[in-house]
Design a protein around this nucleic acid. Structure first.
Length: 492
RNA sequence: GAGCCGGUAGCUCAGCCCGGUAGAGCAUCGGACUUUUAAUCCGGUGGCCGUGGGUUCGAAUCCCACCCGGCUCACCA
């Protein structure tokens, strides 16, 4: 530096602020507006010609964050990182156009600062393609130290609260979220290519219907109107079937005011699609083609690993009825209309403690969830659910005690739910009335829409977060949601 | 909501059983060093030991409550 160092001791933050001031006093812009980057780090490396006899190769102009720095008196090395990768920069007063930039770099720059670099490519004695720096531009001063590079950021709480640091330090995290994006993009493309229309329906609803879940409540001031965040888009998407859209889908958030777990975040992403004139058989074919194609596209293979087990997404997928699934796992043959107390007793004898449910179907479902669900590793359609737990599904064409409904499981997780949609407005009203608690309001506007005539249709819901968990071998849903909900803290 | 585990320097971690006044590596600061790459060498700074209470002459350490997080379970998708 010019005379004595102006950088006294102190904590990281104040030391860096003083360096920033010192740079400003030297006339340096600390947060410039732009930088004409010409090459990514990766492109710069690829530009290097190992055959050339020249000491110095092509001129490049790169920008990124300084993640490593090795100072050697009159020489210095730095690692410049951008989204494409990283490249080493080499500084020496001999090469810099402004010699004083050398001590700026060694004394006033810090790890984590953003910088732009112009210089020529060369290969070091150790064989690393590097840039000998001619001109150095500070692009943004960092005031806090980044987590240590070698061990990375490990603290789970910090990783969720400060996801930007997690992304900076942990490559797997970056890869997971890239794959999430690619997966959703692949699903969308597949559906668009088949003439499905993407729509958006209300997140804020006066009645939270389409699923059974506790909603979040909110309020519109100007209308003085209580509203709910949606728990499902289903009832609105079906209105659009009435409106004549024959193939449609929505990829968006649902909100459920329930417990948080490794499989549950209060807001989560669902794909829901509806297809006029299709039934649940056709929806099964679509679902397996859609998901296996998207998995293949993102993973490069139909096989993925989840919690140490391989999942093979090749079609066709296994199909078995709910009753078959229960019998295969427990040996219990239980009819859909076996009274709930009896089912509970039979299950208890077989070693399954069930919560009390009011309906026969509810008790059967409980047994399935308890005994079977976690064991369904390979993609499996469990079909033909009890009608009394499927109020939005059409009754089974061969057995009115059943609904034409399937759920999709993989890796022990429920990832999909689908029906031949109920389009009989009178039956739908009866189902709502039978199901509704006395307090609960029925969505009359939806029923009115059905009364105008909804075409026969199949519908499907896919839990995107859980599919991404399976795709990326993430054991917690928080690892596939960039900012999972956490209890707020003072610092974060 | 319940059970178990965890919270010590900016980061990664020891110390806790068995109480005696706070440690390491990286980062940071000062010094040496012109091809290093987890650079190296020498010397420093840095802590309300999650919060509050209790026991004790003395608490990071033992006890109680609470906060935050993780895992398992419950509710659910």
């Amino acid at each position: 530096m010019s005379q004595e160092s102006e950088v006294p001791e102190g904590d990281h933050f104040s030391v860096r602020k003083q360096k920033l001031e010192e740079l400003r006093q030297r006339g340096r812009e600390v947060y410039p507006h732009k930088f004409e980057r010409i090459h990514s780090c990766q492109e710069a490396i690829e530009l290097f010609d190992p055959e050339s006899d020249e000491d110095l190769g092509a001129e490049v102009k790169v920008a990124g964050r300084i993640r490593g720095r090795r100072l050697h008196g009159k020489a210095a090395f730095g690692d410049l990182v951008d989204a494409s990768g990283q490249i080493q920069i080499y500084l020496s007063p001999n090469y810099l156009e402004q010699e004083e930039q050398f001590e700026e770099f060694t004394e006033l720059w810090d790890l984590g600062d953003y910088g732009g670099v112009r210089g020529e490519l060369f290969e070091t004695n150790e064989g690393e393609i590097s840039i000998v720096v001619r001109e150095l531009t500070l692009l943004a001063k960092g005031l806090r130290p980044l987590p240590e590079k070698f061990h990375g950021l490990k603290d789970r709480e910090l990783r969720y609260r400060k996801r930007y640091l997690d992304l900076l330090d942990n490559r797997e995290v970056r890869d997971t979220f890239k794959q999430r994006s690619q997966f959703i993009s692949a699903l969308r493309r597949y559906l668009e290519e088949r003439d499905f229309l993407e729509v958006e329906t209300p997140m804020m609803q006066t009645l939270a219907g389409g699923a059974e879940a506790e909603p979040f409540e909110t309020h519109h001031n100007a209308l003085d109107l209580d509203l709910y965040l949606r728990i499902a888009p289903e009832l609105f998407l079906k209105r659009l079937l009435v409106g004549g859209f024959e193939r449609l889908f929505e990829i968006n958030r649902n909100f459920r005011n329930e417990g948080i777990s490794t499989r549950h975040n209060p807001e989560f992403t669902m794909l829901e699609l509806y297809w006029s004139y299709a039934d649940y058989e056709k929806i099964m074919e679509l679902a397996e083609e859609l998901v296996s194609a998207a998995v293949k596209e993102v993973a490069g293979s139909h096989k993925t690993n989840f919690r140490g087990e391989e999942i093979d997404w090749s079609t066709p997928w296994r199909r078995l009825s709910l009753q078959e699934a229960i019998e295969a796992e427990t040996g219990l043959e239980i009819a859909v209309d076996t009274p709930p107390e009896e089912t509970r007793k039979l299950a208890a004898d077989a070693g399954y403690e069930l919560d009390e449910k009011s309906t026969a179907g509810g008790q059967l479902l409980e047994l399935f969830e308890e005994a079977v669900e976690a064991k369904l590793t390979e993609p499996t359609f469990v079909i033909d659910f009890p009608a009394d737990v499927s109020p939005l599904a059409k009754e089974h064409r061969e057995d009115e005690r059943l609904a034409e409904r399937f759920e999709l499981f993989a890796g022990g997780l429920e990832v999909g739910n689908a029906y031949t949609e109920l389009n009989d407005p009178l039956k739908q009203r009866r189902n709502f009335e039978e199901q509704a608690d006395s307090e609960e309001e029925i969505d009359d506007n939806f029923l009115e829409a059905l009364e105008y005539g909804m075409p026969p249709a199949g519908g499907l819901g896919l839990g995107i977060d859980r599919l991404v968990m399976l795709l990326t071998d993430s054991s917690s849903i928080r690892d596939v949601i960039l900012f999972p909900l956490l209890q707020p803290r003072d610092n974060g």
